[in-house]
Nucleic acid binder design. Sequence first.
DNA 1: CTGAAAGCGCTAACAA
DNA 2: TTGTTAGCGCTTTCAG
Lengths: 337, 337
Amino acid sequence: MARRPGTQRIGIADVATRAGVSHATVSRVMNGNFTVDPEIAARVRTAAAELNYQPNPVGRSLALGRTDTIGIVVPDLANPTFQAILRGLSMAAAQDGYRVLIADSSEVSSEEAILAGEARRRCDGVVLCAPRMSDAELEELAPSLHPMVLINRSTDAAQTPSLMVDYGLGIQELARHLVDLGHRKLAFLSGPERSASNAQRLVGLDKFRTDHPEIQLEILPGGSNFDSGHESAEAILASGATGILAFNDLVAMGLLSGLHERGVRVPEDMSITGFDDIPFARYTTPPLTTAAVPITELGDLAWRRMRELIQNKDAEAPRNTFQPQVEVRGSTGPAKA
Amino acid sequence: MARRPGTQRIGIADVATRAGVSHATVSRVMNGNFTVDPEIAARVRTAAAELNYQPNPVGRSLALGRTDTIGIVVPDLANPTFQAILRGLSMAAAQDGYRVLIADSSEVSSEEAILAGEARRRCDGVVLCAPRMSDAELEELAPSLHPMVLINRSTDAAQTPSLMVDYGLGIQELARHLVDLGHRKLAFLSGPERSASNAQRLVGLDKFRTDHPEIQLEILPGGSNFDSGHESAEAILASGATGILAFNDLVAMGLLSGLHERGVRVPEDMSITGFDDIPFARYTTPPLTTAAVPITELGDLAWRRMRELIQNKDAEAPRNTFQPQVEVRGSTGPAKA
DNA sequence: CTGAAAGCGCTAACAA
DNA sequence: TTGTTAGCGCTTTCAG
């Protein structure tokens, strides 16, 4: 093998030589194996300290078949929701000495399978966050990705815990809130086509329609970011609706800004709701009424499920569903008389 | 060695057996080595496909001494600035087939060295993002972390490219903007103690004071997030200043919200500036005047520097400094007559 | 309690 | 062109 010239890294062998023992013994000491003579152990430790030795994790991983790393695949790292999940996951995993490797599919659903496989091979498990791929593909992929934890999706494949948010319920509650305020014409600014959570919102709204036949509800095409909200201001005005359900907080904020530019007052002239309760939501002007999703906790729980899977070969694979919590703030108010 | 029972992964040996060749040949084929007989190569490829073989990156990494992964250490993954840098880095690295491993030091400067070392051992290089450690520690650590790229810090250690933002200049320009609008009493809501970029802002403001002895400028203690901005509203009002320089956009947004609650109109009663130009800045009400830092590009460039270091053992280690660009929006206006 | 040796999955020098 | 063989740095069984 070509030993790369510059590579002057200290290995277990160097420590062994300096301590006058075999590398097996060094390995034992480094791993806190107490079957080693205390005096020898001390000698090894001194040698290691003097050489500033740090075990090479790659060699260790190969020997152990374990990397102490988990992967996460997200559709878009620019989205605060996924950022928060990543953060929750990373903090929780770090507590247990695990690291996280990230992969951003840039909303390209065909990339997801490749990225997920790639990540899985380098890691001990993989978290798929709101995957855009089809149910069939997801189920087919699952065995090769195991241990895997799903966020915002579920699958029939075995051993795959799933963390879901009841977007359908959340959007219904927001709609009801607007109705309670006297709004009779509502509009939903919808999200990305391939988003499963958008589909859930639409189902929820169908139910809402059934429950409230007297209320007018228009569905408008939209997106998932500021700009799409901002651009929709005109269409929203044209719709004549006074209660607006935005796909998420980002869209709501963009809309808020677009309406402000047109002199529309919120909530006096129009009420707006978001979804997710990202940290920014309470700081908009006016503060955003929204449905709070415990996003960071989602990441946290994802790690706990993953840990169960890693530790317990045949762990349960529960499906948790979180109920969004409506947070009434300043962006919604009584409909004009 | 204990072969873990469940592990049914297909290795290069299985492919070799099935194709009736040695694993060396399989390796050659998998790596696109053209010295292999086309017919044999085809046979290997079929076997690999039939077995759905995917090379194990850990074995590969050990053999090559290369992981095709880089690490990034950030002080706080909840901060949109670091999220954006991470995103820029990740996208750019992905283009070249590299992944990124993240480590969040949670603003604990004593953790940074450990996390950075950990990350470095698992990766081919490490990006240190706004490290909180001392200059001395940074310089001492540098050799063991090489290849390393620094963001928002620099060091005298050799071979360490540095990506800097001229916060001192940016804050001066914002201050000048406020003065041009007629403000005579300014206040700076400062950031975290250990933040090097906060120190740079303070130096810039010292210079500003020298240049504008007629202007009153008060420095108030603060923080780096919404809440600290929100909590500072009272102190800001008490200061009597009409032009407020917030540490960053988050602080400015919190302040905006705090002032709104107290009935202070922005910009009519008071002008507020942020710093960074995070995506949310243009969507606050009113939109935030701020100094734009090309954050995502910073991540992108960090990768390019890293790539140079990895490819070119003795690459240059330039220090790039970015000039923030003042973006005048609605949160600043003429001082009251 | 310790060392020798095998093996994790792969790459690459060397020989045939 | 291909196979044999020796590592990469570590863990762990098995003798001693």
